[in-house]
Computed example of a mutant assay.
Amino acid sequence: MDNSVVIKGNKNGIAVKMDASVSFDELKDMIRDKFTASAKFFNNAALALSLEGRELSDTQEKEIMDIISEVTDINIVCLIDHDEERDLIYQRAVADAMNNKNKHDVTAEIMGKEIEVPAQPLCQFYKGTLRSGQVLETESSVVILGDVNPGGKVVACGNVIVLGSLKGNIFAGANGNENAFVVALDMEPMQIKIADIIARCSDSSPVRKKLKVKTKQPVQPKIAYVYEGNIYVEDFEQNVLEDIHL
């Protein structure tokens, strides 16, 4: 049995393990055959995809995703990154979030209050890069542990926090909440929409007048929010946080 391409399920979705010694063209044929044979098993599943075993360019990654989409009905929600340094940052962020959650639970128990757990979590975490054509939708807030590339899109009823580079389209407060906000470590979006208010990046202008982000400034975390009917982007600092209404 040829194990040059192995498909395995994991906690995030599916992992495609590839033999680094086999040519990429051969691997593509094998991937096509493997996923064609297992198409009925996956049905219309929405899964994160992990490509492992060899270094791939963005073009090669897209070719593989196109093959999978062509022969199956899988909805690839994101492509999982394997940057070790970034993984450590992600793990710490998730651990901090879980620690805060546990503290809140203990406080509620001591005070003797009954807390109704919502069917939909207040915030979700997604690890991976959203590439062109991929859409991530949630009825809560979302923390994206990765990048949103040009052509990628996020739609959330709550807030959107990108622990990476934001260069795609973001729609926060999709349920009409103008208090929603967007935070990114590197804020260079094609479009930001909060509730019914839209701010776009002009391809012909080096400076985004609406977003007030200069393209040549050093990269630093920024926050986008609504004020008096307009979307503004500012440095992510303590004084800005004090004005946020959750």
Rank of each mutant, 00 (worst) to 15 (best):
L122G: 15
F125A: 10
F125Q: 05
F125E: 04
T129A: 11
T129Q: 08
R131A: 11
V135P: 02
E137N: 13
E137W: 00
E139I: 06
E139M: 14
S140D: 09
V142K: 03
V143T: 13
V143C: 10
I144R: 03
L145E: 04
G146P: 09
D147I: 04
D147N: 14
D147Y: 05
V148C: 08
V148A: 04
N149A: 15
P150L: 14
G151P: 11
G152R: 10
K153C: 11
V154A: 04
V155K: 09
C157S: 13
C157K: 14
C157H: 14
I161E: 12
I161V: 14
L163G: 02
G164P: 02
S165F: 04
K167W: 00
K167H: 10
G168T: 02
N169Q: 11
I170S: 02
I170Q: 00
I170V: 01
F171R: 08
A172Y: 00
A172E: 00
A172T: 00
G173F: 10
G176F: 10
N177I: 12
N179D: 14
N179Y: 13
F181L: 12
V182Y: 00
V182Q: 00
L185C: 06
D186G: 09
M187A: 10
E188F: 15
E188H: 15
P189R: 05
M190K: 14
M190V: 12
Q191D: 02
K193H: 03
I194H: 06
I194G: 03
A195P: 03
I198L: 13
R200N: 15
R200Y: 10
S202N: 11
S204I: 09
S205D: 12
S205R: 11
P206G: 11
K210D: 14
K210I: 05
K212M: 12
K212G: 09
V213F: 12
V213R: 14
